[in-house]
């Protein structure tokens, strides 16, 4: 039990002393998580919007596929992306393997279904009168869609936050395609895995606390935003 308490004490010391390793890893993780979330939402939210608001042949199948992809094993995604980016793979010439862009690519694949499925669920739950009212007031199709998005904004924001949380906490794919290279592709999660395997419990706890802090901060911001909207 003492090693746990000691681990927490040293973790706090590492964070408070501004340890360069901890802050470098944290900065890289935030950069990767933000980039992946933005790219995944740019792709996933429009897909979710189309699936959630329009009627087309195969829509139910599309929803089922999206929901199934939520449970995609991260190591499988890592292996597939690794296969695509390795020197002999179709995109090997880009030289992206073991760079932070490779991690972004894997995280985007994991986060797109989250953004799409949660967006579809969000816009499906919106009162059909929203779009109809917009149309009766003279809105064109895009403005009417924007009205639906406006009414669903908190649910859409929640989709973004969940996607961000997923990519921030992901370890399997990041380890495979990033290689956990110090100062290049070492993220909070891969660093925690490495530190704990090396017995550096304090560093693992410190990085874990930073991860939790980031997740907490994002969720508090979401709560504050939602609270203001419902006031």
């Amino acid at each position: 039990m003492d090693f746990l308490i000691e681990g927490f004490r040293r973790a706090v010391q590492l964070i408070l002393s501004g340890d360069a390793d901890v802050f470098g890893i944290t900065a890289l993780s935030i950069k990767i998580a933000l980039s992946s979330t933005v790219l995944a939402c740019l792709v996933g939210i429009p897909i979710g919007f189309v699936v959630g608001t329009t009627r087309f042949w195969g829509r139910r199948a599309a929803l089922t596929v999206l929901n199934t992809m939520l449970a995609f094993p991260t190591v499988v995604v890592g292996v597939v992306i690794w296969g695509l980016l390795t020197r002999n793979g179709p995109f090997g010439g880009l030289g992206l393997l073991y760079t932070w862009w490779a991690i972004v690519a894997a995280e985007v694949v994991l986060a797109v279904p989250i953004a799409a499925a949660l967006t579809a669920a969000a816009v499906q739950s919106i009162d059909p009168r929203v779009r109809r009212t917009a149309l009766t007031l003279g809105a064109g199709p895009w403005r009417a869609h924007w009205a639906v998005a406006g009414e669903a904004r908190f649910a859409l924001l929640a989709a973004v936050v969940v996607a961000f949380g997923r990519v921030l906490a992901e370890v399997g794919a990041a380890m495979i395609v990033g290689g956990n290279i110090r100062n290049h592709t070492r993220t909070l999660t891969t660093a925690v895995a490495l530190a704990s395997s090396q017995g550096d419990f304090a560093l693992a706890i410190a990085l874990g606390l930073v991860l939790l802090g980031l997740a907490l901060t994002v969720n508090v911001l979401l709560q504050l935003f939602q609270g203001r909207g419902h006031a």
Binding site: D127, R129, V130, R132, T133, L135, T136, L137, G138, A147, G150, E151, G229
Partner: peptide, 16 residues
């Protein structure tokens, strides 16, 4: 046509 015709529905919806 929707730019010169408008409808007030039975249970009207007001945007947030």
């Amino acid at each position: 046509a929707r730019r010169i015709v408008t409808l007030v529905e039975q249970r009207p919806f007001l945007f947030s």
